[in-house]
């Protein structure tokens, strides 16, 4: 019910394609196996428990979050972008906090969504809070309301760049 609803809105891949579920399943199983390996520090005898756990986690994840589209190239572009921008964001806010005159002038800003509802929007809302000067404060059907730490003329541009990057991660084209 819940997942059906989301599937329609986020253009999840066709629901009865067994192949896609199979492929996603293998992929997620590999991810969970990696996670298990990390958590157990690579202890070999832990796999006795690990294999069933990974299997169960994979099935549960397929039931709870149906396969969605994503793009490896999009992710490869996003990671360095996010890395540097969030580092800059931290440095920027640190500088303002330590500055004797506290150079901030907060305001609210509304960003109209171009991303489809669901996962991409939640993802973007979280990312925005880690980027320079922006904090996602509210999200609804039409827009993302953002608290900005200081006014500049480039927030609109910056946000559309972020949105494009996020769209890339999910292999989507913006309308």
């Amino acid at each position: 019910m819940h997942s059906d609803d989301r599937r329609q809105r986020l253009e999840f891949l066709p629901r009865d394609s067994v192949m896609i579920h199979l492929r996603t399943g293998w992929f997620r199983a590999a991810l969970f196996a990696l996670l298990w390996w990390i958590l157990t520090d690579g202890a070999a005898d832990s796999w006795l428990v690990g294999v069933p756990v990974v299997l169960f986690a994979t099935l549960a994840s397929l039931a709870l979050l149906p396969p969605f589209s994503w793009s490896l190239i999009g992710i490869a572009r996003f990671v360095p972008f996010f890395f540097w921008r969030s580092l800059y964001g931290g440095a920027d806010v640190a500088r303002r906090a330590l500055h004797p005159r506290l150079p901030i002038s907060p305001d609210m800003y509304e960003h109209r969504w171009r991303l489809p509802p669901g996962l991409p929007r939640v993802f973007m809302a979280n990312i925005v809070s880690l980027l320079p000067g922006t904090l996602s404060a509210e999200l609804d059907e039409e827009c993302l309301r953002i608290h900005v730490l200081y006014e500049t003329s480039t927030f609109a541009e910056d946000l559309s760049v972020v949105e494009k990057q996020v769209a890339g991660v999910f292999g989507l084209a913006l309308v």
């Binding site: 920027d92 640190a94 904090l135």
Partner: peptide, 28 residues
């Protein structure tokens, strides 16, 4: 960065600005 996060938490004037300091500085 941790120091700056705490300083921001203490110096910034309202809950929203403090959130900025905390999330960004401490994560870096």
């Amino acid at each position: 960065f941790f120091l700056a996060g705490t300083v921001g938490l203490l110096r910034f004037p309202d809950v929203y600005t403090r959130l900025h300091a905390l999330t960004k500085a401490d994560n870096v």
